[in-house]
Amino acid sequence: MTDGTGRTPTEAFVAHRNLLFTVAYEMLGSAADAEDVLQEAWLRWVGVDHDEVREQRAYLVRIVTRQALMHLRTLGRRKESYVGPWLPEPLLTSPDVAEDVELADSVSMAMLLVLETLAPAERAVFVLREVFALDYAEIAEAVDRTPAAVRQIAHRARAHVAARRPRGSVSAAENRRTVAAFRGAVETGDLQGLLDVLAPDVVLLTDGGGVVRAALAPVVGAGLVAEVLGNIASTTLHPTLINGDPALVIRRGGEVDTVIAMRIDDGLITGLYAVRNPAKLSRVERENPVGR
């Protein structure tokens, strides 16, 4: 059985898989949970009467969105008992993702943390509208709201995100220079070099999940953050692309120990996100296909 594009249901699912994974990941901040959502979506998709499906992409996005919304409830309960700051699961991404500015921004660690501050329905609507450009009628079906209600939710979510997203536009080249300066300062223990690239109100979040050593509260201020980073001086930091942005990886004994992602505003680092929880580090060894 095929649709108007000539694709069978299986071919359609495979063709849209990167999009579906990205929708689920942006809603959940967890690649493992996003994969679970895709498994559940596949089981529902194969049970659908495909003769009744007018547009496969929209239908698949609807299934994934509904499953992700259900997972958000479970994830919320899990976060309530999480030890220390909770950070999204970092993904190793290809250079192609970084070249798609809107996609890279939407999966960045900084943006995912902003999305965490939205209510579940707001998060779903924002992702589907602002990132994937679905029309209001399609989103309404996915979140079980009227198109008019979806417009209101989208307006509210857009204003919320706009107030919290990175303040200044920074080129990819400037980002790389800032990350390189930060890397050199940490590796050599250059305190002044660190202070030169850290914003005065920089915030460091470390996610150990209660499994490995990590700060249990945010570290705020350039001086305190530089002091903490001084503990890893002389450690080699390996540059990589995480969630579409330049990032650094610390390895110990050949294994990934820490992923350091960052938020850069106007050439200064305003946020540092150090993921150390071993359960969240399996996706930084191989590229993860995200897409629109």
Rank of each mutant, 00 (worst) to 15 (best):
V150P: 00
G47Y: 02
W42I: 00
V101C: 02
L69R: 09
W45Q: 00
E35F: 09
V46F: 01
A110N: 10
E130N: 04
D96S: 15
L92N: 12
I63W: 00
R151Y: 01
A142N: 04
A173C: 02
W45C: 00
V37K: 12
V53F: 03
A142W: 00
D144L: 14
P120R: 11
V107E: 03
Q67K: 10
R165D: 03
Q152F: 03
R151D: 01
L75F: 08
W86P: 06
R129N: 14
V64I: 08
F126R: 01
L91P: 12
R158Q: 06
L43K: 11
G84A: 14
A173E: 05
L72G: 14
V37I: 08
Y136N: 03
E138F: 00
V37R: 11
T74M: 10
A172E: 12
V125S: 12
R158N: 05
A121M: 05
L112H: 07
V131E: 02
L72Q: 15
E40V: 07
A98F: 07
E52A: 01
R145F: 09
R44M: 13
H50C: 04
R129H: 13
P166Y: 01
K79W: 13
L87G: 14
L91Q: 12
I63A: 00
L118G: 09
S108T: 04
H50R: 11
Y136E: 04
V97T: 14
R54N: 11
A154K: 05
Q152L: 11
V37S: 14
M70R: 06
S106M: 07
R66Q: 15
Y136R: 04
A119H: 12
E116F: 07
D100S: 15
L87M: 14
L69A: 12
L43N: 08
M109D: 08
A98I: 08
D36E: 10
